[in-house]
Write a protein that binds this DNA or RNA. Structure first.
Lengths: 146, 146
DNA sequence: AATGGTCTTTAGGGTAGGTAATGAGTTACG
DNA sequence: CGTAACTCATTACCTACCCTAAAGACCATT
């Protein structure tokens, strides 16, 4: 079987990937739509937009965060009117988190602002490079969730 | 002029990219070689390995961190014997930071461990997806440094 | 020589995440 | 049936990391 990952080029790619991801994440932290929303809070809203609704435990697993952290995040989002908490129909220990209409509007605004920021950044890339990145985006997302 | 970035596909790519980067960075934090080394400290060592040596101010700019943070990071790295601090030859305000042999050894070990972790993660990707990612890695790195 | 600018550092503060322990609720087993 | 073991969410506390503001040391231009 061909080993896709253990050759030298791939080792370099892994190194590149890690360093780029860490650096970009630091910079993205400063590009918030709403100053009062942390990157993870944003990410949770994104997840809810995709999945409809979820329990705090499910969200914690999806975001790779510990349950107590998710409790705090959900509480903050609720205080800001961005999510709704309802009792779980079958299990009274659990709760069901879902996003509000306000959250949907905010995500929309967020998308355009992030787009503007990355657009400015991507001015420094040529057409071919940007195309490469566009193709890689969904793969990177898949990788992150594995 | 063709607008590379403002179409719908690119907006989706930006969204994907941001969410994937944030999530991956959170997960990478937990995959440290040395428990006592933060992601930014690792990144600084990587930069030093590429550039040979640099002043704290240069490092701060490269890592997109404020100068006081770099002061602390460099001090911690020095305490761990991973970097050396010398006076700047021309300017007594500045210092010159360079990595030690110990740091080189650690980076080597780090690479293989990260490689192993990403390898395990990438088992979930098919050959084509991994190829896409390999091509994108240097571009992502360029983007992060823009 | 002095004044303004630059590099580093010190001091202090804030945010986001983690661990340990608790309480409430469910499930399984005697 | 009831109790023991497990699970989910939460509370309380702690740590790591980065920031801003301001000071100290040094350069550079006049």
């Amino acid at each position: 079987m061909p080993d896709l990952i253990h050759d030298g080029d791939s080792a370099a790619a892994v190194s590149s990937l890690r360093s780029a991801v860490m650096l970009l994440s630091r910079r993205l932290k400063h590009q918030r739509v709403d100053e009062s929303l942390s990157p993870t809070e944003m990410s949770v809203l994104g997840t809810l937009a995709r999945c409809g609704s979820a329990t705090p435990g499910e969200l914690a697993r999806k975001e790779h965060v510990q349950p107590p952290s998710m409790t705090r995040i959900v509480a903050l989002l609720e205080a800001k009117g961005l999510v709704r908490l309802e009792p779980h129909p079958d299990d009274r220990r659990q709760k069901v988190v879902s996003q509000t209409e306000q959250a949907e509007a905010m995500l929309q605004e967020s998308r355009s602002k992030r787009n503007a920021w990355l657009t400015a950044l991507a001015e420094g890339l040529d057409e071919e490079e940007w195309e490469t990145l566009r193709k890689a985006a969904p793969v990177l997302e898949k990788l992150a969730h594995l």
